[in-house]
């Protein structure tokens, strides 16, 4: 069971670090097309910020901010969106994850492929973030 440990240094360092880590995670996910990074690393970074919250705030307060059910829902829905994005081009006559055949009206060509990659990156980020937080929660439940 994780409990809150009263310490000014830990509180201040966590309250400064958590928003910075979350902002950097969003940057890594969005910047994944152009440089190193992408959905997996961004999702792991976001999950690390949530785990830091869990460690410094304790169980009750951090479960109010990010409930464990939300982690499971994020993991499952990210996987669902990924599968749908993969299967939708197959229904429209392309191959699996063939972004050029995504049935979205109004966009085509490079823009459509850009949109497909963005959707897939975000769904991977959500899925990985939920899975990591879920792993931590399950392990912390087993603690005495």
């Amino acid at each position: 069971m994780i409990e809150r440990y009263e310490n000014v240094i830990i509180d201040i360092v966590c309250s400064v670090m958590v928003p910075l880590i979350q902002l950097f995670a969003l940057y890594v996910v969005v910047h994944g097309h152009y440089g190193p990074g992408g959905g997996f690393q961004g999702g792991v970074l976001f999950a690390v910020s949530i785990i830091l919250l869990r460690l410094c705030l304790g169980k009750e307060a951090s479960h109010k901010k990010f409930p464990p059910k939300l982690a499971a829902a994020l993991a499952a829905s990210g996987m669902l969106v990924y599968m749908l994005t993969g299967l939708a081009p197959m229904a429209a006559g392309g191959a699996f994850l063939d972004y050029g055949h995504l049935p979205i009206p109004g966009v085509s060509g490079a823009e459509l492929r850009f949109l497909g990659i963005t959707i897939v990156e975000w769904s991977i980020a959500f899925s990985v973030c939920g899975t990591m937080v879920l792993l931590f929660d399950v392990l912390a439940e087993g603690m005495r």
């Binding site: 890594v28 440089g35 190193p36 990074g37 992408g38 997996f40 690393q41 792991v44 970074l45 690390v48």
Partner: peptide, 9 residues
């Protein structure tokens, strides 16, 4: 850089 990012996180 990508591998190093995953390894660090």
């Amino acid at each position: 850089i990508d591998v190093s990012f995953v390894e660090a996180t």
